[in-house]
Design a protein around this nucleic acid. Structure first.
Length: 813
RNA sequence: GCCGAAGUGGUGGAAUGGCAGACGCGUCGGACUCAAAAUCCGAUGGUAGCGAUACCGUGUGGGUUCAAGUCCCACCUUCGGCACCA
């Protein structure tokens, strides 16, 4: 039995010395860019989830290397973020210190893992030489008009006087720290105009080799809907624009609803002071609910009448204006026309508040039961009566365009990306506020805007940086007068939206990346990470790629050609691992006991990679047993003396079949990250080798070649172990300079196949038949068989279905 | 609530619409051993039967098909995301 610990450190040292893990630019034409989502250094330790992401993916990467690709597999840390700051508030340990310490620990563990990471390209997003370029990215987006400021709602804890992340708001809408009710408060924030790219982000999904479910999630997230904008005249003289996908129901409008945050609310309140108190109370009530609750279709509908009326754009009728929190200010225009007869929510609301319900659509061929939300024939709709849904939508849109009251419009559910964070541990936003010149970008030559160390990061009611005078006070680059820096930092998703471009050019101190290198190395060939990133990170990275392309910095459209999601390893109790549940499994004790290769093999063999599942270590011993068996087989093969025969008889043919079947299956399975079946095929091959080992008359030369191939086959899955075996077999160079065994299709051709014989779809017999028979010949042979003939006694064969190489189904009556 | 998935033996998991349960674990039986460990060989979805065999079986209920774990409809349960966790 091999001492895995010493074998692993031996080979890790050799790999480091030979620089085998380092990307060789000379071979860039054969590059294969494999990227695992980088880690957030929150805990001090690598957990099972990291291992599960990186170990098997490294096996895939090593396989590609053995196929002759020049592998680029970098690693780094997404090091800014909330947890380090929260930890600092709790313990007083500075985020920079705790983060650096965590990174050092994780780097050591990642090295011990023995993955083929190119550490020369390492990135840490919290370091100046990285966030300088994150700030540069912000400036480019600003120049291009893709960064702008507007008011947005944030979670605000009135007692802690701080903005809270959604994660810090507990289920019942209270602050996790002090238990106060969290309010939603308006705050001016920087936004990226991702909505400018909504259409392309949607269209280009078709180009991507991504899981269909992920593409569908993004499609729904972007949420394109084609409809109509309709403008109602409000009694205050303003216009209320609404977006609807059902302009065909416009004659059925019973009232208009504004989101409680709608800017018009103040004016309406002023116009109707008798309702001001009720409106205020309702706005306060709505500020306590989150979007998820507000959109719930089963939640009790609430609202308040403003006292004001709007004019119907076609009929000229007066309709009341309500506020209701089932309308979100962030979606569409923040206002809807309510058609009680043909919308579930509007119907419920109208019933509750005693509002009229006007039917304008009639079901075709049946009784119309309200609310009726499907398409039908228009009634009570003036000149549009009798039209169908599609006809009416076109006709009414055209009519509104003609009268200047609206028209066709495409709306997206996608919202612009809010990137301001009122926090310390992030990249400072490189903008300056000057009383004279307004908002002025920091000149690129002055980057980075350094994040100061000595900052009070405990909550004070302002952004932490706002209290740091040395940071805040600066001179305006435009007028040279006194000015103030933007006190906010960037969302960490900004850091991670472009890191894949930095890796191939990680030491460039003149640019974020060179266009030439980026065009050569990107897009990433395979990107591996969790499904939970389906909508946000993966969409942001796509957006930034497209924006950089439009600015001419890169010349491709998508960051990640292919995407794979690993599953999640749950705790032994079936729940997500978490400290509070006490179900966290540390990989360390297994790595200590069995070694990194065996732990990796177990992760690959014990789970379906894309599914994951609850942890249990029942099978890990059996993996150690398996490697022992392989080692014995390899060592015993050294004892085999020179050839006694060089024939390819039945036994050799069988072994050759097993070998080639394994090669063929693995080559196919590993491409789809099916590691468990790949390893199953290697185990079968090992079983076949063990069987052949017992032969007294061996073709030794052939057998030894088979053993060599076994080690090559196993190498990506158990890299240290295989290197050691390769050396034991007498080879001088690393097994990773070898080519992965190629399949010999000739060896897979069989002379005969076993068929299942069915009668009326029930299996009745098994028959071994020669290859190359026609369906008629097969039927004749089967029917001539004595057992089958007995079963067919007195019946006629109406139909015979032959599935080549599998089964024969006789339909008899 | 909305969007997206998943449900298969005692267990982890396999199955281009074509022999359900590959490959393992566990269990049982056997060999080796004074004995144990290790190793090797065999059996192992359920029910009935001495047996050949028969029937049942992929969350539940329907459907399509010569043939359904796989496709369609309805439902149940669990998981991921829902825009300031990353």
């Amino acid at each position: 039995m091999m001492d895995m610990k010493s074998v692993e450190s031996k080979w890790q040292a050799k790999w480091e010395k030979s620089r085998i893990n380092v990307f060789n630019k000379k071979n860039a034409d054969k590059k294969w860019y494999v990227l695992e989502m980088f880690s957030y250094p929150s805990g001090a330790n690598l957990h099972v989830g990291h291992w599960y992401n990186y170990g098997p993916t490294d096996s895939y990467a090593r396989f590609k290397k053995m196929q002759g690709y020049e592998l680029f597999q970098p690693m780094g840390f997404d090091a800014f973020g909330l947890p380090a700051e929260n930890y600092a508030i709790k313990t007083g340990i500075h985020p920079k210190d705790s983060t650096e310490k965590n990174i050092a620990t994780m780097e050591r563990q990642l090295h011990n893992m023995g993955a083929m990471f190119d550490w020369t390209a390492e990135i840490k997003t919290c370091e100046e030489n990285y966030y300088k370029w994150t700030q540069w990215l912000f400036l480019q987006l600003y120049k291009k008009g893709l960064a702008y400021r507007k008011a947005a709602l944030v979670n605000w804890c009135p007692d802690c006087e701080t903005v809270l992340a959604n994660e810090q708001v507990l289920g019942d809408g209270v602050c996790e720290r002090c238990g106060s009710v969290v309010l939603r408060k308006d705050m001016t924030q920087w936004f990226f105009k991702i909505t400018d790219y909504a259409e392309e982000l949607l269209d280009d999904l078709d180009k991507l080799d991504w899981p269909e479910k992920t593409k569908l999630m993004q499609k729904n997230w972007i949420g394109k809907s084609t409809g109509c904008e309709i403008r109602f005249a409000c009694e205050t003289g303003d216009e209320i624009a609404v977006f609807t996908t059902r302009p065909d129901t416009v004659f059925g409008v019973n009232y208009v609803v504004l989101a409680p945050e709608h800017p018009l609310v103040e004016k309406l309140k002023a116009a109707h002071p008798e309702n001001a108190d009720a409106i205020d109370a309702y706005v306060r009530y709505a500020a306590e609910a989150n979007d998820i609750d507000r959109l719930s279709t089963t939640r009790e509908k609430t609202g308040v009448f403003t006292g004001a009326y709007a004019t119907h754009p076609i009929t000229g009728k007066q309709v009341p204006i309500y506020l209701a929190d089932y309308v979100l200010y962030s979606y569409g225009t923040g206002a809807v026309m309510a058609v009680a007869a043909h919308d579930e929510r509007d119907y419920a609301f109208a019933k509750k508040y005693g509002l009229p319900v006007t039917q304008v659509i009639q079901k075709v061929g049946g009784e119309t039961v309200l609310p009726f939300t499907e398409d039908g024939i228009l009634v009570n709709s003036g000149e549009f009566d009798g039209l169908s849904g599609d006809e009416a939508r076109d006709a009414i849109a055209a009519y509104l365009t003609k009268t200047g009251k609206g028209g066709k419009k495409v709306n997206y559910r996608l919202r612009d990306w809010s990137v301001s964070r009122q926090r310390y541990w992030g990249a400072p936003i490189p903008m300056i506020h000057c009383d004279k010149c307004g908002i002025v970008p920091v000149p690129e030559k002055d980057l980075p805007v350094k994040l100061p160390y000595d900052v009070e990061f405990r909550p004070t009611g302002k952004s932490p940086l706002a209290t740091h005078e040395g940071f805040m006070n600066c001179t305006c680059p435009k007028c040279g007068g006194k000015a103030q820096r933007d006190p906010d930092t960037l969302d960490t998703f900004v850091c991670s939206s472009w890191y894949f471009l930095r890796y191939p050019d990680a030491h460039n101190d003149k640019q974020a990346f060179s266009t030439e290198i980026a065009d050569q190395m990107a897009p990433v060939d395979v990107y591996v990470g969790g499904y939970e990133h389906a909508c946000m990170h993966l969409l942001y990275a796509r957006f930034i790629t497209k924006a950089l392309r439009d600015m001419g910095y890169i010349h491709f459209d998508e960051p990640f050609k292919r995407l794979v999601h690993q599953g999640i390893i749950l705790g032994p109790d079936g729940n997500r691992m978490s400290k509070s549940r006490g179900n966290v499994i540390s990989p360390d004790k297994y790595v200590d006991e069995y070694g990194s290769d065996i732990f990796r093999l177990y992760l690959m063999f014990g789970f379906s990679y894309t599914e994951g599942g609850p942890w249990n270590d029942d099978g890990i011993k059996s993996i150690a047993k398996f490697t022992d068996r392989v080692e014995r087989l390899v060592r015993n093969s050294l004892e085999e003396k020179a050839n006694t025969n060089n024939l390819m008889n039945a036994a050799e043919k069988q072994l050759n079949y097993a070998k080639n079947y394994a090669i063929k299956s693995i080559t196919r399975d590993i491409e789809v990250f099916s590691f468990n079946t790949s390893l199953a095929r290697i185990m079968e091959y090992v079983n076949a080798l063990q069987k052949y080992e017992t032969e007294t008359q061996k073709n030794v030369a052939f057998y030894k070649a088979c053993i060599d191939d076994l080690v090559r086959m196993l190498a990506p899955f158990a890299p240290h172990f295989s290197e050691e075996l390769w050396e034991i077999l007498g080879h001088k160079d690393s097994v990773f300079t070898e080519t992965y065994p190629l399949v010999d299709e000739q060896a897979l051709i069989k002379d005969e196949t076993e068929y299942a014989v069915q009668i009326n779809s029930k299996i009745k017999a098994k028959m071994t038949l020669p290859e190359n028979l026609s369906n008629e010949e097969i039927q004749a042979i089967v029917c001539a068989n004595a057992d089958i003939a007995a079963l067919l006694e007195g019946k006629t064969v109406k139909k015979c279905i032959v599935v080549k190489g599998r089964l024969i189904n006789l339909i008899v009556g």
